[in-house]
């Protein structure tokens, strides 16, 4: 009986790996945009920069499924090409921000004392500059380019990631198994790598997803203000900016890139909300 029970317990559903249909759908949307970011420009029906239609702000049609923009360029092609910028820049920034945040957070939690106070104070100060404002100031000072954008986004979102990882790591650090390892004489590097990191990884990855959403939103916001990706390249935020003129009559050109952003960000949010509890929950 107990043998049968324990075997049945091993199915993914019972292990806490229950995955909801909404989560699967969200994961599919994310995967779609990830693929588009890689192959988008090659499968675009028209060259993204080429004026293909004399009619600007054209409606949806068989030839131009998402209409045309203010110059008469094919919106589908421009949205597909923009995926590379929006997804790529955001992904690079979130990787940088979270790596820095997690490493610093764990170090602060394990070392404690003076190191902890110093790192926390400096990052608190950084985070008390509203993020958009920080972007504005830096972009104004050194101009906008893709590396600058990635850097700015990473700096803006490092403190949040740090605070999250540190809180988790502080919790884990008080656990007796860390104390045992300490009493055994283990070095700090081992404590961080073997005792702390594996136990904060799940929630930290979920947090990284949320931060990715914030970064996509901020990048779009900067581009919308004209401070993000510069022409001739265009991410989704720039596409909305370019086509703002069509807003007063509801042109597809201004709506479609907005929908692209929304599908990506909402999907990431939904995926995280529907992650198996084992991953999402802060480790007990």
């Amino acid at each position: 009986m107990s043998q049968a029970l324990s075997l049945r317990n091993l199915s993914p559903r019972n292990m806490g790996w229950h995955v909801s249909p909404v989560g699967v759908l969200a994961a599919c949307v994310i995967a779609f945009w990830a693929v588009m970011a890689m192959v988008g420009p090659w499968i675009a029906p028209h060259p993204p920069g080429q004026i293909v239609d004399y009619d600007f702000f054209g409606p949806l049609s068989a030839e131009y499924p998402l209409g045309t923009d203010y110059l008469g360029r094919d919106m589908l092609s421009r949205v597909l090409a923009g995926a590379r910028f929006t997804v790529g820049i955001s992904l690079a920034a979130v990787m940088l921000a979270c790596t820095a945040g997690i490493v610093l957070g764990m170090a602060a939690a394990v070392l404690g004392g003076w190191t902890d106070t110093a790192i926390s104070r400096v990052l608190d100060a950084v985070s008390s500059i509203p993020s958009k404002l920080f972007g504005l100031v830096v972009v104004a000072a050194i101009g906008s380019s893709i590396p600058v954008l990635i850097g700015v986004l990473a700096v803006v979102y490092t403190p949040g990631s740090y605070r999250f990882a540190r809180a988790l790591a502080v919790n884990v650090n008080t656990m007796d198994y860390v104390t045992v390892a300490r009493a055994r004489g283990e070095r700090t590097a081992y404590l961080i790598r073997a005792e702390i990191m594996p136990n904060i990884l799940g929630p930290v990855l979920a947090d990284m997803g949320l931060r990715f959403v914030f970064i996509v939103l901020m990048l779009s916001g900067l581009s919308f203000l004209g401070l993000g990706v510069q022409p001739p390249n265009a991410d989704w935020g720039s596409l909305v900016r370019e086509n703002m003129g069509g807003l007063s009559f509801g042109a597809p050109a201004v709506i479609m890139p907005s929908i692209a952003i929304a599908t990506l960000t909402i999907s990431v949010n939904l995926l995280i909300d529907n992650l198996p509890t084992r991953i999402r929950d802060r480790s007990e």
Binding site: S220, S258, N269
Partner: peptide, 23 residues
């Protein structure tokens, strides 16, 4: 709430304009 949080402010503004001004 999740939908509004997930989209950029300019999209909310765009939608508000579309709904209240255009339509």
């Amino acid at each position: 709430v999740v939908a509004v949080i997930s989209v950029p402010e300019f999209l909310v503004a765009t939608l508000a304009v579309l709904v209240f001004a255009v339509w």
